[in-house]
């Protein structure tokens, strides 16, 4: 394929992925890598590098909007970024050791989990009590609710911190944002309100990905010719997606998207196990 055709195809696929990712709240990055490797035969490491770049773009773009709304808890984000950036660096270094087939299988498993999660939204949490460690770290926060400011407490700081290290590691290992895992750590374990968890997670994804990006650059995973259409495509798609539906996540679309992600997951695992990806 010539460069013009290849760039156009990659741009189109990435725009569609970014659009669906924004509509379903799953993030577009997670499906770009498998599509690039499985359909266009791109080396997994190049695909991960290009996707990581698009993750920084969409996260920073979306975070700009969320920070203004006042939902993002900057202290929680900064404190947990210590864990995610260290994890990301560990994960990015691991890509040099883990064989591509292994990466493909891990990627497939993460995709499967994402598919399952997007089809089964997380139930809301009960109100927790104040946690001395969280109070000491000044993590408790407030956000603008329908009936004025809502104050909330943060709990299980140590568990959340360790989960964030794993989320960062997964992000560095696979070149993804691992937003789903960050949200679970904050919402399910630290009992942070869902809206605050999702926006703070978005805020953290860009910083986590930037930590991996340094290592990826040195290893040569970030090819400008490939990252260009992926970044521009995902950014275009996610901007359109965010404009069309702010907040609403149609159930049917979620299920269809979950199905697509599930299929990609099986394909990745199959190719990883049979050695189809080298």
């Amino acid at each position: 394929m010539n460069t013009l055709a290849f760039s156009s195809v990659v741009y189109g696929i990435s725009a569609l992925a970014g659009f669906l990712g924004a509509l379903t709240g799953l993030g577009g990055g997670v499906i770009v890598t498998p599509v690039l490797t499985l359909m266009l035969g791109v080396d997994l490491r190049f695909a991960m590098g290009a996707t990581l770049i698009s993750v920084i773009a969409t996260s920073s773009g979306a975070a700009a909007a969320y920070v203004r709304e006042g939902f993002t808890n900057v202290r929680v984000g900064m404190f947990l970024e210590i864990a995610t950036t260290l994890g990301a660096i560990a994960g990015a270094h691991l890509t040099a050791v883990v064989p591509v087939s292994g990466l493909a299988v891990i990627f497939g498993l993460v995709l499967l989990y994402s598919a399952w999660q997007s089809a089964h939204p997380i139930p809301p949490q009960k109100e927790p009590r104040a946690d001395p460690l969280a109070v000491h770290l000044k993590l408790d926060g407030a956000y603008p609710g329908a009936k004025g400011v809502v104050h909330y407490h943060v709990t299980r700081v140590k568990t959340g911190f360790s989960l964030m290290f794993s989320a960062g590691m997964l992000s560095g290992l696979l070149g993804i944002g691992s937003g789903a895992m960050k949200v679970i750590a904050m919402d399910q374990f630290m009992k942070i309100p869902f809206k605050v968890s999702t926006t703070t997670s978005n805020f953290m994804i860009g910083v986590t990905a930037a930590a991996s990006a340094g290592i990826y650059l040195h290893r040569g995973y970030i090819e400008p010719g490939l990252a260009m259409p992926v970044m521009l495509g995902v950014l275009t798609g996610s901007l359109i997606g965010a404009r069309i539906l702010v907040g609403a996540r149609p159930r049917l679309l979620r299920l269809v998207f979950a199905g697509v992600v599930g299929l990609l997951a099986f394909e990745m695992i199959y190719n990883g196990v049979t050695g189809g990806l080298k």
Binding site: M1, T3, L4, F6, L40, G220, M228
Partner: peptide, 26 residues
């Protein structure tokens, strides 16, 4: 950069199926 790149090398074949990085480091 993308427009320049495509105008410059648009008709040359491209493949990313083998891991031969064109750039390493900042």
């Amino acid at each position: 950069g993308g427009f320049w790149y495509v105008a410059h090398a648009g008709w040359q074949p491209i493949s990313y199926s083998h891991f031969h990085p064109s750039i390493r480091g900042v």
